[in-house]
Computed example of a mutant assay.
Amino acid sequence: MIIKIELPKGIMKGSATLGKLSITLDKAQADYLVTHTDYVPACLSTVATTLSEFVETLVEQLRTNNKERIRETYACAMNRFLQFRGGHDIALDAIGSQEVEAFESHLKQAGLTLNTVSFYMRVLRAIYNKAVRQLSITDKRPFDRVFTGYPRTPKRAVDVETITLVAGYRTTNADEALARDLFLFSFYTRGMSFVDIANLRRCDIRNGHLIYKRSKTGQELQVAWRPEMQTIVDRHPSLDGDHLLGVLNNDATLKLRRQYQQQQSKVNYHLKRLSMRLGLSKPLTMYVARHSWATIARGMDIPVSVISDSLGHHSEKTTQIYLKSIDADVIDRANEKLIAAVENNG
Rank of each mutant, 00 (worst) to 15 (best):
R125G: 06
D31C: 01
L210I: 00
R290Q: 08
I163D: 02
R190Y: 14
M300P: 04
R170H: 13
D159W: 02
G279S: 07
T116W: 01
I197C: 11
P237H: 05
K255N: 09
N173L: 05
P237M: 04
M121G: 01
I321T: 08
R235A: 14
S186L: 10
V223Y: 00
L44H: 03
E220R: 09
K13F: 02
A102H: 02
L58C: 11
S45V: 09
V247R: 05
D196G: 00
S315I: 11
A42I: 11
P227D: 06
A131L: 02
N79F: 04
P303I: 09
L248V: 04
K255E: 11
G208H: 02
T46E: 10
E60I: 11
A179K: 04
G10F: 06
P41A: 03
R170L: 14
V304K: 12
A126N: 13
V59D: 14
L278A: 10
E60L: 12
V195G: 01
A334H: 03
L82E: 01
Y260W: 04
D89F: 02
S97L: 09
N344H: 13
L256W: 01
I3K: 07
M300E: 15
R258D: 08
R235K: 13
H313V: 11
N129V: 00
M78K: 15
Y269A: 13
M276P: 00
Q222E: 15
I205A: 12
F143A: 06
D309E: 15
V223L: 02
M192H: 02
I331E: 13
V34I: 14
Q134E: 13
E343S: 14
Y287M: 07
N129E: 03
K272F: 07
Q219R: 13
K140W: 03
T171E: 12
S310P: 00
Q109Y: 01
G208A: 07
T171G: 07
L135F: 10
Y322M: 10
S136K: 15
T171I: 01
S15R: 13
Q263G: 03
Q109T: 14
D175P: 00
T253F: 07
R152V: 11
V330Q: 10
S118V: 03
